[in-house]
Design a protein around this nucleic acid. Sequence first.
DNA 1: CCAGACGTTGTT
DNA 2: GTCTGG
DNA 3: CCAGACGTTGTT
DNA 4: GTCTGG
Length: 261
Amino acid sequence: MCGRARCALSREEVASTSGVSQERWRDVEKFQPDQNMSPGHWSPVVKYDKNGQLELHTMKWGLVPSFSKPEEKPDHFRMFNARSETVPEKGIFKRLLGRQRCIVLLDGFYEWNQEHKQKQPYYIYLTGGVTKMAGLFDCWAPAEGDPIYTFTILTTDSSERLQWLHNRMPVILPDKAAEERWLQTAELDPKDLAAVCEPFNGEELKWHAVTPAMSRQGYHGDDCAKELKKPSITAFFKPKQAAAAAQLPRFSRPQKTSSGK
DNA sequence: CCAGACGTTGTT
DNA sequence: GTCTGG
DNA sequence: CCAGACGTTGTT
DNA sequence: GTCTGG
């Protein structure tokens, strides 16, 4: 999953959907709504501060561990995801599981599917609001400049409905209870972790094809996440038959649904 | 003990 | 095909 | 994750 | 920081 995402929310929307006011948003000025976000870019997360108060914090996607050398060139593409199944075993993530959990606020994310020798991007999102994902964060002090907060998004096996597109998906927190469990629980035993990381398979999960233009990083047009109306090959060559076929039941191919609608 | 690595994705 | 850069 | 480059020689 | 390999 998830080497590309969308957080086109306004500051107001970020605040209202997180339940945290803009006054409690650290580095708010670093956040700019982005239709097509890659690792290395700033995005808002929710976490508890030292005093146990919820706060928003703009961090860079792509974890850079605190023990990275100060003069090192940060690589945000190395750890933009963390396999939830092995997080408790990997030293690099294990140490963050204690008190450096966060919730990543996104509109949705993108995945690619190989179609007719082309890579077709899809936008995946939840109806009725933002997608809240389980994340871990860290803080690294470079030789020059301010300390940099970074986060990674946990992944899990894809749920049944998304299998056709990809074998992995982000850990989506389905409700307030899951959010609280992820954020609040001081110690998270493996059972709780596994429960939180259950693949999300709800009907709210939707997807549609989008413009291949967004495959290129640096493309930030507002059509990035817009549904692509692509004429089918069949319709192109045999419009009448295709139109007729569209009215009839198709061969059952549940694993290859191409629209989440 | 110290030194050195520490990750994911996909693809096969 | 495979590596690098973002 | 995807996109884009990937090499040498000599000459300017 | 924490685990692995030698």
